[in-house]
């Protein structure tokens, strides 16, 4: 069920976003994010997948204002973040919240759960202590926890319960977009589903938009409306979930999907493993041309020279690759097929 894009209002529009960090040893810059454009609509989940160094977490942090863009802009309701005063930006930023991988990250060990729930409301201001307390307890119930949890401390809660509290914390702030950065990676597989269902329920109820960042493609595929695939600070492919999973256009997407170990008997694994050679290059010194060319079985001389354009090859399905076509990738060059299957 892909949602019609045009019908919905974008919560955020990101154009040509770049985030650079000074590099410690070379005096040069690390381009953590290098020219990325996308938008997220109300009620939509955009999955962002990629490996370490792909820039996915940097994108997430920039969306909530934890990092400033070096170039490009973020536009909310038709207005650029750059054109806002500090105070205005601070007030608006409240609508953009983040939940982290480590369930402990946002919970002070010396605070009761109630205090942790009240804290963000205090910062936002405008509510009496009694009001904040009532809202906090209501939020606990909304995420499926009993009210008596409020008097406990974080070490008394399981990982799944803590992640529920982290969801409960942001609800009173009336968020529009929540950046979920590897939110279930620290949880056991057996309980991930329970927390993911909660994310989904909360989204439906409040019409939230999610930027769902994860390295686990199977989780992203099951929760996202659209998926962006990142590699070394760039998007290599962006499209509806079914397009990305079943009709991948970029060699890196194909490799990433095939690398995910499938818990299935051999005859049901319908993806042939394509093992990429070599390591992910350093984002401090990315390869020339197409950044994936050093590991790509399809790469030709052109790929080392020229940066591929970001093209919309099918409706809503964008890709940056010289060799792919709207029907998919041509057969893999025979001389570069790995010897084993």
């Amino acid at each position: 069920m892909t949602t019609p894009q045009a019908a919905r209002t974008p919560v955020i529009e990101v154009s040509d976003l770049s985030v650079r960090f000074p590099s410690l040893d070379s005096g040069s810059e690390v381009r953590a994010v290098d020219g990325v454009s996308f938008s997220i609509s109300q009620g939509e989940t955009l999955g962002i997948i990629g490996e370490s160094g792909s820039g996915k977490s940097t994108i997430g942090r920039t969306l909530v204002g934890l990092l400033e863009p070096s170039d490009g802009e973020l536009v909310f309701d038709g207005r650029s973040s750059a054109s806002m005063s500090r105070r205005e930006w601070r007030a608006r930023r409240r609508a953009f919240q983040m939940i982290f991988q480590d369930p402990d990250a946002a919970l002070n060990p010396r605070m009761t759960i109630l205090q942790s729930l009240v804290e963000p409301m205090k910062i936002a201001g405008g509510r009496s202590a009694a009001e904040m307390r009532d809202i906090a307890l209501e939020s606990l119930e909304k995420v499926g926890l009993r009210r008596d949890m409020a008097q406990r401390y974080r070490h008394e809660l399981s990982g799944g319960q803590k992640q529920r509290v982290n969801i409960a914390r942001i609800l009173p702030l009336d968020p529009k977009l929540v950046v979920c950065d590897e939110v279930v990676a620290a949880l056991d597989v057996s309980i991930r589903g329970e927390v993911l269902n909660l994310f989904r329920e909360v989204q439906k109820e409040l019409g939230l938009a999610y930027a769902f960042i994860a390295h686990d493609i199977s989780v992203v595929a099951q929760i996202s409306d659209r998926i962006a695939v990142t590699y070394l600070g760039r998007f290599v492919e962006l499209g509806g979930t079914d397009d990305i999973i079943d009709r991948s256009l970029h060699p890196y997407t194909v490799a990433l999907l095939s690398a995910e170990p499938q818990p299935l008997p051999p005859e049901l694994r319908h993806r042939k493993r394509m093992v990429l050679e070599g390591d992910i290059p350093s984002p401090a010194n990315p390869p020339s041309g197409c950044r994936f060319h050093t590991r790509c079985p399809w790469a030709t001389a052109l790929c080392a020279e020229k940066d591929p354009e970001w093209r919309e090859l099918r409706p809503g399905h964008h890709v940056a690759c010289h060799h792919t076509t709207p029907e998919g990738l041509p057969p893999q060059p025979a001389d570069r097929r790995p010897p084993t299957d």
């Binding site: 057996s190 329970e194 993911l196 493609i217 199977s218």
Partner: peptide, 23 residues
């Protein structure tokens, strides 16, 4: 069985996630 059912995989229909209740 519960562990296997809890694993999302991308060729499964999108919908509710399965999980094992309790701990």
């Amino acid at each position: 069985s519960g562990l296997l059912r809890s694993l999302p995989h991308f060729n499964r229909e999108r919908g509710q996630f399965a999980y094992i209740p309790g701990r």
